[in-house]
């Protein structure tokens, strides 16, 4: 009896300690996200008019904004569906590619540090200030004759896709699979650009696998293939979840749907519709994340 009470108090103490650890996050969440999200929901449920003095006025409008987004806006539904589809198509490619690259980079070879540094570059190049300034510079210069010539060059140097398709079909590949693979080859540039973060996460995961597990596997006489599936893969599996989550969110943040909402706010000056759009698309992404992480987590190995 006495023993049980003590254990209760210990687990109670553990839970209090845990709460202390997350307190800063909780305060920040309630303060910035909680409050902000309530305000955002309020915005989306009302029409907002800017006042001359610099403030704004809200008039309650019910679900009008949502009705407008779904029923009247010209491109929202289509863009949402196509953005989500693109996202789902790219995720497995990026995950496989980055795991593969991380495995290669984790093995020993000459010039490893250089290659790692090179694979790190897209992370800087494809985010924030550098990407924006380059994109802006190229926007002003592209167009007119330059655009035509570069387009012509691109079409000429491209791979003969039709020929490859026919070849794969003759080999007995299912048509959808070969289309998917060829589309993937065509987007290899985007995939490499979008995999920088995932490669580094996998690399860190691979390096935190305790070395003695490999020793045991070797002593037991496991082949490299078995070692991969019995040791490496389970140990890395939690980070597959991380990378899936990151990839989905990253694709979502760079998708057209965000631009549609952004234009609504800053070109059409219709803030409340824009917020409604963001809420709808975020909700859709949350559902996708929930379903996918639930599905994957069956195969994930955790110590506890």
């Amino acid at each position: 009896m006495k023993k049980q009470r003590r254990r209760m108090s210990l687990s109670r103490r553990r839970s209090v300690t845990g709460f202390v650890f997350i307190t800063p996050w909780l305060i920040g969440f309630l303060w910035f996200y909680g409050k902000g999200a309530i305000q955002a929901v309020l915005f989306s449920l009302s029409t907002m008019t800017m006042k001359q003095s610099g403030g704004y006025q809200l008039d309650f409008a019910g679900l009008d904004n949502f009705k407008y987004v779904f029923l009247q806006h010209a491109t929202f539904n289509q863009t949402l569906v196509s953005s989500l589809m693109n996202m789902l198509i790219d995720v497995p490619l990026i995950i496989f590619f980055s795991l593969f690259m991380a495995l290669i980079l984790n093995s020993k070879f000459k010039g490893r540090a250089v290659i790692r540094a090179i694979l790190f570059l897209p992370i800087i190049m494809s985010s924030g200030a550098i990407r924006d300034s380059i994109a802006m510079a190229q926007q002003t210069i592209m167009g007119g004759v330059a655009a035509v010539s570069s387009e012509a060059a691109a079409s000429e140097s491209g791979v003969n896709v039709q020929y490859l398709m026919n070849m794969l079909m003759n080999l007995g590949f299912p048509a959808t699979l070969s289309e998917y693979l060829i589309a993937a080859v065509g987007r290899i540039f985007d995939i490499v650009q979008a995999s920088g973060i995932q490669i580094i996460i996998f690399l860190a995961a691979l390096q935190s696998v305790p070395g003695n597990l490999y020793e045991v596997a070797q002593i037991e006489g496991a082949t490299p293939y078995e070692t991969f599936w019995k040791v490496t893969f389970p140990m890395v599996s939690p980070h597959i979840v991380t990378n899936v989550v990151y990839t989905i969110v990253d694709k979502f943040m760079n998708s057209d749907i965000i631009d549609v909402a952004y234009d609504m706010a800053f070109s059409s000056y219709n803030w409340s519709v824009s917020v409604a759009m963001s809420l709808i698309s975020s909700f859709a992404v949350c559902i996708i994340l929930f379903v996918i992480t639930k599905a994957i987590s069956k195969f994930v190995f955790y110590y506890n």
Partner: peptide
């Protein structure tokens, strides 16, 4: 650690990852 509402709170972490910062700019 285990504490009450842990799953709900962790779902909130995921929410902060997903929610576009543009939406919360004004607040």
């Amino acid at each position: 650690f285990n504490f009450p509402f842990k799953k709900l709170l962790f779902a909130c972490v995921v929410l902060t990852i997903v929610l576009p910062a543009d939406t919360l700019m004004l607040p």
